[in-house]
Amino acid sequence: MTNQIAENLEAIHAEIQHCARLAGRAANNIELLAVSKTKPVSDIVLAYEAGHRSFGENYVQEGVDKIAELKHLSDISWHFIGPLQSNKSRLVAENFDWMHSLDRLKIASRLNEQRPAFAEPLNICVQINIDEEESKAGVLPSELMPLLEQLAPLSKLKVRGLMAIPKSSKVKSEQLASFQKMHDLFATCQQKYPQFDTLSIGMSADLCAAIENGSTMVRIGTAIFGARD
């Protein structure tokens, strides 16, 4: 029986290479995050067997259960990419390697306090509401620099970069406009914070636009694991 997930991963990597070539970038500077939310552990194992190591989960308890079940696969990097309520922060602090959706100091302070002493600092991306949509989480671009200054003393967090989910559009010029704003914001941050190395933007529908604007991490789910129930 063929491993369809392995074939899908190969196709996505080929698309990343194609988009990177068009953008004049090296494809090995762009990490593929496989979004495994709602998918069974068996699917993650198939992706793992195909050589994949970075997985994204949107729901805290589901993610924690999968991490526990797969703890023998110690080289998996687990990314929390969904909204986080403060009463669930300990589970993220104790179990995940990355948190992509930080958008307020209260959550950051809790994560910092709850990160185990023996663990490496929790890698953080600050979520940006780049198109200033009322329905979306994330800090406004104008709020970012003050928040980063407040995060700087939190030693159990390592702020690595920015994440965004721009407004949905099939028009490439509109995709590019949102991603260009993210690119410029990221570049501004890098001037002040040299450890900034992660721009988590781009999904299946806007992969090339994101890579053209400097994405270092793209989040792909359905194209790897198939449609969700």
Rank of each mutant, 00 (worst) to 15 (best):
1 M>P: 12
4 Q>L: 14
9 L>E: 12
10 E>V: 07
11 A>E: 12
18 H>I: 05
20 A>C: 06
22 L>D: 15
25 R>Y: 04
26 A>Y: 04
27 A>D: 04
30 I>W: 03
36 S>D: 04
39 K>A: 07
39 K>F: 06
45 V>D: 04
49 E>Y: 04
49 E>N: 14
50 A>R: 05
50 A>I: 07
51 G>T: 08
52 H>T: 05
56 G>D: 01
59 Y>R: 10
61 Q>D: 15
64 V>T: 07
68 A>W: 01
68 A>Y: 00
77 S>G: 10
77 S>T: 15
81 I>P: 03
86 S>Q: 03
88 K>D: 09
90 R>F: 07
90 R>V: 11
91 L>R: 14
91 L>K: 15
94 E>F: 10
94 E>H: 02
95 N>K: 11
102 L>E: 03
106 K>L: 08
111 L>F: 01
112 N>I: 11
113 E>C: 08
116 P>E: 13
121 P>I: 08
123 N>H: 13
124 I>G: 08
124 I>T: 10
126 V>Y: 02
127 Q>N: 07
134 E>G: 01
135 S>F: 03
141 P>Q: 06
141 P>T: 00
143 E>A: 15
156 K>W: 04
157 L>C: 09
162 L>W: 07
163 M>V: 02
164 A>N: 08
168 S>L: 14
168 S>R: 13
174 E>T: 03
176 L>G: 07
190 Q>K: 15
191 Q>D: 06
191 Q>G: 10
193 Y>F: 15
196 F>N: 09
198 T>A: 08
199 L>Y: 03
200 S>T: 12
207 L>H: 00
211 I>K: 00
212 E>C: 12
216 T>Q: 05
219 R>L: 07
221 G>W: 00
225 F>W: 09
228 R>A: 11
229 D>R: 13
